[in-house]
Computed example of a mutant assay.
Amino acid sequence: MLSMREFWNIVSISLCVQAQISQQLSDTGHTWNYDDGENDWSKNYPFCGGTHQSPIDIYSNIKYDAALTPIQVVGYDSPGIDHFTLSNDGHSVKVSLPATMYISSLKHKYTAVQLHLHWGDQKRPQGSEHTFNDRRFAAELHILHYNSDKYVDSQTATAKEDGLAVLGILLEVGSFNPTFENIQKYLSQVAYKDQEVQIPAFSIRNLLPVTLNEYYRYNGSLTTPPCYPSVLWTVFRQPVKISQEQLFSLETALFSSNVGDSIPQPMVNNFRQKQERAKRELLASFKEDFTFPIAIAFILGIFVIVAIIIYIIRKRRARQQSESRKRVMYAAAQKAEGTSSIEI
């Protein structure tokens, strides 16, 4: 029987071998997209058909873990550089991030690499990858980090079991977001695949929820090929708002095709469908607040009981009134009969 160390050695070897295969496939020109269906991804990228895949639906059997402390980030307010590189990779719009940004509250130091987005289209403006009880949000922002304590760079870390950590931020339509505007106003300059532009650096912290203490945690994968199961996911409970106009710009400004292509391909619906959670543990850094739902249920219960009581009382009164009318009619009939007999 295999020991745990032997088991993980086999898993690590498997990851390395499949990573090499996926890299070779990428080098030989294999491409992927969302249009042809995600079921085809696994033909060229084996991990995409494997286990521990992302995204998932966040619902039921969620375990509270008191050890999940608030997320702490360094350099998010002041990245230490003057400019970011904004680019279009044909699948999403991406902002490259400096090594001065990292997560400090995990077991290892995870250094930022890039952020990117997933969204829907105008007909179906719900394009988040993670869902809450099958509710899909307008869009989703991912900030990718790699384990810089153990690995020399993100490319090396990508195929490692503990190689990556992603912060997932759900976006919903609401008020105008001035920080998101730092990306949105430059989208027209990276409209086509492989275009990039330098944009002024800004506070990435303002793209995150105000508080970073409520989130879900699970082990998963990259949501795009090669789908390596190497991601420690943190999905924040509280969505961040962007305006309807900002979402519209995201849905209409970008193309997956090159600038010279005869038929431009709009970059829309670039989100992966939910994957099987199976027996994976889903943790929460907070306890679900059942006070409000219980209060609502209690009030509704009282209304139902009162309604039933009123119905019973009204029905009883109606029956009593009916019986009373019958007695009056019977008495009147008897009187009439008695009067009739005397006259005869």
Results as ranks from 00 to 15, higher is better:
Tyr218Pro: 00
Tyr218Gln: 00
Asn219Phe: 02
Gly220Pro: 01
Gly220Lys: 04
Gly220Glu: 04
Leu222Asp: 13
Thr223Ile: 12
Pro226Ile: 04
Tyr228Cys: 01
Tyr228Ala: 06
Ser230Leu: 03
Ser230Pro: 00
Val231Tyr: 10
Leu232Cys: 06
Leu232Glu: 15
Trp233Leu: 06
Thr234Leu: 03
Val235Phe: 01
Phe236Gln: 14
Lys241Arg: 14
Ile242His: 00
Ile242Lys: 01
Ser243Met: 02
Gln244Ala: 15
Gln244Tyr: 00
Glu245Asn: 11
Glu245Gln: 15
Gln246His: 08
Leu247Gly: 04
Phe248Cys: 00
Ser249Asp: 14
Leu250Tyr: 00
Leu250Glu: 00
Leu250Ser: 07
Glu251Ile: 01
Thr252Val: 03
Thr252Phe: 09
Ala253Ser: 15
Ala253Met: 07
Leu254Ile: 07
Phe255His: 10
Phe255Gly: 12
Asn258Tyr: 14
Asn258Glu: 14
Asn258His: 15
Val259Cys: 07
Gly260Trp: 12
Gly260Asn: 15
Asp261Arg: 12
Ile263Phe: 04
Ile263Pro: 10
Ile263Asp: 08
Ile263Lys: 10
Pro264Arg: 12
Pro264Trp: 02
Asn269Tyr: 05
Asn269Arg: 15
Asn270Thr: 00
Asn270Arg: 03
Phe271Leu: 10
Phe271Met: 05
Phe271Arg: 05
Arg272His: 08
Gln273Ser: 15
Lys274Trp: 11
Lys274His: 13
Glu276Met: 08
Arg277Glu: 00
Arg277Gln: 00
Ala278Leu: 13
Leu282Gly: 09
Leu282Ala: 07
Ala284Gln: 08
Ala284Lys: 14
Ser285Asp: 10
Ser285His: 09
Lys287Asp: 10
Glu288Asn: 13
Asp289His: 00
Thr291Cys: 07
Phe292Thr: 11
Phe292Gly: 06
Pro293Lys: 13
Ala295Trp: 10
Ala295Val: 15
Ile296Trp: 03
Ala297Tyr: 13
Ala297Asn: 15
Phe298Gln: 11
Phe298Tyr: 13
Gly301Pro: 04
Gly301Leu: 13
Gly301Arg: 10
Ile302His: 02
Ile302Asp: 01
Phe303Val: 08
Val304Asn: 07
Val304Leu: 07
